[in-house]
């Protein structure tokens, strides 16, 4: 066995160095939101001296046409609706891929893996036009429907790896007792696979909440924008006002960070399981 000693101290030092390098900007962001802009600029490293909360004044934002609470609501509606539809559709398909015999299954599997690599940009032009034809520009559904499709390949692949682990014998027994596929799926397989389903939900939550390009193109109207797109308004004339800008950025980071703090184990194991076979 390798034994702890001076070597371990050096390793810890190196790891802590990288941790500081990686996390300091995020910590700085959080702390700077509590300082007036002038303070941030003049004493950039100094921690906040008092609890200065004016940066979080949402009224001030809306006077400037930056509707943080509207963006927040849009992001929430789009993310939750997408997750609901995506999970139902993904569960059915993942179960079918893992446990049922069907025509063209191998071709579907290869196609799904191939779709993981498709750059959405390559499809953005026809999709934009298609959504426009459906009269869904600046409409939540104009974003939700393509999102469901784009997050499906990864979801199906990950879900089927969880369903595969479920022993066939138990399903056979349930079927002999007179259950059909839907009942076996709903009463026996689903409850056991809840952990896997949660993993898929959480990873998709992050992906959907943070998505940018589609939202940028489809949600034109300021009242329809999601958070990442809404935050781009800060690239404009208010770019110099660091305080409110950093506060808005920090607010948008809270939901994903919270999710990460609670579910990091599931996220980490799920991402490796879905992308790597065996």
């Amino acid at each position: 066995m390798r034994k702890p000693g001076i070597g371990h101290t050096i390793i810890h030092a190196l790891l802590i160095l990288w941790a500081i390098l990686q996390l300091y900007p995020v910590v700085w962001l959080a702390l700077s939101t509590l300082k007036p802009t002038a303070d941030i600029l003049s004493r950039i490293f100094a921690p906040p001296t008092s609890l200065y909360l004016s940066n979080y004044d949402l009224q001030l934002f809306s006077q400037r046409g930056i509707l943080i609470s509207v963006y927040f609501l849009n992001s929430t509606i789009v993310t939750l609706t997408t997750l609901t539809v995506l999970t139902i559709v993904g569960l059915l398909a993942g179960y079918a891929m893992a446990k049922l015999n069907g025509p063209g299954k191998n071709v579907i599997l290869i196609a799904l893996v191939g779709m993981l690599g498709i750059p959405v940009h390559a499809l953005i032009i026809p999709l934009y036009y298609f959504v426009a034809q459906l009269k869904l520009l600046s409409n939540h559904w104009g974003l939700i429907l393509p999102y469901v499709a784009f997050f499906l390949p990864f979801s199906i692949l990950l879900l089927q790896t969880y369903f595969r682990q479920f022993p066939d014998e138990i399903m056979e027994a349930a079927k002999i007792d007179g259950g059909n596929h839907l009942q076996v799926f709903g009463r026996i397989v689903m409850p056991v696979s809840l952990g896997g389903i949660a993993t898929v939900l959480i990873i998709n939550f992050l992906g959907i909440w943070n998505e940018f390009l589609f939202s940028l193109v489809i949600m034109k109207n300021n009242h329809a924008k999601t958070l990442p797109v809404g935050l781009m308004s800060f690239r404009g004339p208010y770019n110099a006002d660091w305080g409110p800008m950093l506060a808005a950025m920090f607010m948008a980071t809270i939901p994903p960070l919270l999710f990460y703090f609670i579910f990091h184990r599931k996220i980490i194991s799920g991402i490796t399981a879905g992308s790597l076979k065996e």
């Binding site: 059915l92 398909a93 079918a96 069907g102 299954k105 032009i125 026809p126 469901v148 499709a149």
Partner: peptide
């Protein structure tokens, strides 16, 4: 029976992917 179930379970996913990925892919 199983083939039919497979198709039924796969149908929503296939529709979504065909309409929002494959169709734009052909267009592009």
């Amino acid at each position: 029976g199983e083939y039919v179930m497979f198709c039924v379970f796969m149908l929503p996913a296939v529709v979504f992917i065909s309409v929002f990925i494959l169709y734009p892919m052909i267009q592009s």
